[in-house]
Amino acid sequence: MKKSGMSLLEIVISISIAVVIFIPAMNMFSTTGQAVFKTRNFSFANSAARRISQRLMAMPYEDIVEVPLPGIALFDAPAESFFAPFLNTSGTNSGAKNITQADMPEFYSYLVQHDFRYSLSVSNVSFGDGDEIKSVGILITWSENNKNMMYRLYVYVPSL
């Protein structure tokens, strides 16, 4: 007489099928979640790089200098950098706000959490008589799931 119920083999097969289906399925979900969060970081890095690229156009040519890796943090950034001071709704210098825990807690924690930083890689060619052109590589780095990410944007800035 056969024994009633499923055989061990059947159980093993069904469990493996369940595992094979569910684990990637779960990964799929977490990947989606990750993708959205990654996208947020990517978009932010993108706009941070753009902010720098635009400011490079307006700043004095000689002030465009190399910022070596690991770079300057976007939060608690030193004065007169690309991200400090950040806001100022008052009429005087004293009202200026920086990206600090005290001034902008939420924005600050987002930047700190991912350790957003910027670096500049500057190549300068001089054609003589003050006629120069710089190629500036804007490197935004951040940390994401223990992975070091980088966003690169290149821009030409001519001397005036």
Partner: peptide, 14 residues
């Protein structure tokens, strides 16, 4: 992150 501000061996281009 633990490695904040340190120079990693490599980065991943986003």
């Amino acid at each position: 992150p633990a490695n904040a501000g340190k120079l990693p061996s490599h980065w991943t281009d986003s």
